[in-house]
């Protein structure tokens, strides 16, 4: 039986922040990299984000924050995921993040900080690498090393 797994990513915008262009760009870009991207829309509470991450069984949560509240919002999301036993999900943060806050975010368990100017290819590569490290035995299942340009698995393009 052909495995049909795909990396699933939740792109979420927590808090009072109306700027979603960056989140859109990342969502479209990751889709083109072959990921399944779930987009939550603006002004989500940390509870909504945690609940979406659990129900959608995503591999990655990408938080987009431009409001300056990245430390407290990210902390709440991390705590929420932990409370649901879902702290194995990779969390990345993007947006306007001062360089001096990077370390604090990483201490919370954030597995990647991408400020403006980050390249989609780099974000995708980072996600593939981190997921590969987290569950090496699932590398093949998850299609971690398939290129974004490959058509859907199981449609006759495999086995070349």
């Amino acid at each position: 039986m052909v495995q049909e797994s795909r990396i699933r990513v939740l792109i979420a915008k927590p808090g009072l922040d109306g700027h979603e262009r960056g989140a859109h760009v990342v969502a479209y870009g990751l889709r083109d990299e072959g990921f399944e991207v779930i987009y939550t829309g603006l002004r989500q509470t940390p509870e909504q984000i945690v609940s979406a991450a659990v129900q959608e069984d995503v591999d990655v949560v990408g938080l987009s924050i431009l409001s300056g509240a990245h430390l407290s919002l990210t902390r709440k999301v991390m705590e929420g995921l932990k409370a649901k036993g879902a702290n194995d999900i990779l969390v990345t943060v993007g947006g306007i993040i001062p360089e001096e806050d990077r370390e604090a975010l990483e201490r919370m368990g954030v597995g990647g900080v991408f400020t403006s100017g980050s390249k989609i290819k780099d974000i995708a590569a980072h996600i593939r690498t981190r997921l590969g490290e987290m569950c090496p035995h699932e590398e093949e299942n998850r299609g971690l090393f398939t290129e974004g340009t490959q058509a859907t698995a199981g449609t006759g393009h495999e086995g070349q």
């Binding site: 990751l30 889709r31 083109d32 991207v37 987009y39 939550t40 058509a151």
Partner: peptide
């Protein structure tokens, strides 16, 4: 790409 953007939520 085989990817998808799922926005119904």
């Amino acid at each position: 790409s085989g990817g998808a953007l799922l926005g119904d939520r």
